[in-house]
Write a protein that binds this DNA or RNA. Structure first.
Lengths: 148, 148
DNA sequence: TGCGTTTAGTATGCGCGCTTATTGAATGAA
DNA sequence: TTCATTCAATAAGCGCGCATACTAAACGCA
């Protein structure tokens, strides 16, 4: 660092934070490309997939779905209306809570979620392949960062 | 996975991609909080810091700065005008390229970049502390993902 | 029962990351 | 020198992530 900035890091490549930022941007590009054939954004896919995977027991509310998917409630509200417009999600009044909305994936939604999920999982495998055989360890590290 | 989605991952916590996404969002929140006292966004800080650290040899153009900082050229253009309005950056016509802009951090810009950098590096240390003593290894992993 | 508090959903607005397109200047080849 | 190509900077627009604020319904407690 010969410039006017006093940093611990001689180059941006040494900063864990900056690297994390760049890697996630690169990953988002890959996922976006993988989902483009399905006309899905990443958030659309995540919400539909989480909804489909919870389909067995009950109808989630938007709040519950947002909690499970770790998405912003505002985004969740907006994206679910888009998914409803596509005919992939049903949004009905909640039977016992007049404020809430009971969500369910339509059959088309489930079908598309499964096909898109295969594409996303393939893109993920390709993206994280350079970590093999340490991919699991890397995922555990990410979990540690979330726990705190 | 007892629902309607056929996935390799029983829960989102097992998907490296989703974990990466969540961790980066959490990291962005920490950085945003650390930079709030300086009235900086993350991109503002990164561009100013990279510019200050390159200050020694020449005046970068916006394109060169965007390349070094790995930021989008559109963002770079817009954020640099904001930094100029704050008096932290000078944007002059390039002496030999009529299309380009010669950038330099002002003295106030350098001072603020150094103070903000200390705050960001502290926030980074705190955020990645749970990885110790494997932080370096984690950073190397991130580098591997970018290389491909 | 009544009323203050909490909660589900949504409107608005801002900065980021990206795509597409435009303008004008530099470049390179005939 | 001329003209097609490349390139720096920027305009416009979209979806994401977040903050703030509002409405209406549910909840809790006396």
């Amino acid at each position: 660092m010969t410039g006017a900035l006093e940093s611990r890091f001689p180059t941006p490549e040494r900063s864990t934070g900056l690297m994390l930022w760049r890697v996630t941007n690169a990953w988002q590009r890959e996922i976006r490309a993988a989902l483009a054939p399905f006309d899905f954004t990443h958030v659309q896919f995540v919400l539909l997939a989480v909804l489909a995977s919870a389909q067995h027991d009950e109808h989630l509310t938007q709040r519950e779905l947002a909690d499970r998917a770790a998405t912003d409630p505002m985004m969740t509200s907006q994206v679910l209306r888009a998914l409803e417009a596509k005919g992939l999600v049903d949004r009905r009044p909640h039977p016992s809570d007049g404020r809430a909305i009971a969500l369910s994936a339509t059959p088309q939604g489930v079908t598309l979620a499964n096909r898109a999920n295969a594409a996303v999982e393939a893109a993920d495998r390709a993206f994280f392949a350079p970590l093999a055989p340490g991919t699991e360890r890397f995922t555990v590290d990410l979990g540690r960062l979330l726990a705190s």
